[in-house]
Write a protein that binds this DNA or RNA. Structure first.
Lengths: 120, 120
DNA sequence: GCTATCGTTCGACGTGGATCGTACATCATT
DNA sequence: AATGATGTACGATCCACGTCGAACGATAGC
């Protein structure tokens, strides 16, 4: 039954992941950073000099969920990916981010990771 | 403080709005700022030296919605209110915010208000 | 007292988003 | 080709959140 090659209207493969999105506006930027998982990803990326494969970050969520978060960060212009063999290396776009919203990344990374900051 | 005047099993009145909440953690802080209405409120508050009554800010949403946003900002420790007659004056907690997350408010306020920042 | 104004609370609604499982794509190796 | 590893697309589910209208609380002034 219908072994017709199911290309059209099925899963299309979108390579726009590789084209760098422009850095988004401040609201979208904050929204992208305002999720605990994504913030953790950004912190991890910031703490390593070299770009890292997606799978080496986080573990508390599924592959698909992780891919979703990477998409959000990509579309906000916060990260970029490049293919290397069978993997994709992810890196922070520090310079572009700094140009679009100076100081934001710095302050977010410097903030204590725990719960309340303890300032009343 | 912040107790509740219990009347007849219905609306309870919570005065904790006046007790300053501690500045929240970075995630909650970002979440509070990542809404267009709230961000606009914060910008408006930042642009005026004196504290302002709630009603003098924004108009694109209902009273109740506005009150909800103020609550979120209050509970994140971003703003504080004090009663003055029949109004409540709202002000940014710049110092506490700066102590809890240095540079964050500055960078957010300095960011262009429009859509995309235009950095590719 | 009554009335007006200002802000809050409650309840309900709709939408967006975070999560997952499954199926699929791509590349490398065997 | 077949298999394994890595990441993406899609569909479904669930829940948090932004929004509103209506009722209520607090204060000021008539």
């Amino acid at each position: 039954m219908g072994w017709v090659t199911e290309l059209p209207e099925g899963h299309s493969y979108d390579n726009s992941q590789l084209a760098s999105h422009p850095v988004a506006g401040i609201t979208e930027l904050l929204q992208a950073l305002a999720d605990p998982v994504r913030l953790s990803l950004v912190r991890d990326l910031a703490s390593s000099i070299e770009p890292r494969p997606c799978g080496s970050l986080i573990q508390s969520v599924t592959k698909s969920t992780l891919s979703h978060h990477f998409r959000v960060l990509r579309e906000a212009g916060i990260i970029e990916m490049r293919v290397e063999g069978t993997r994709k290396l992810t890196s922070l776009r520090r310079a572009e981010l700094e140009e679009a919203c100076p100081g934001l990344l710095e302050s977010v990374l410097r903030a204590p990771v725990g719960e309340t900051a303890g300032v009343s």
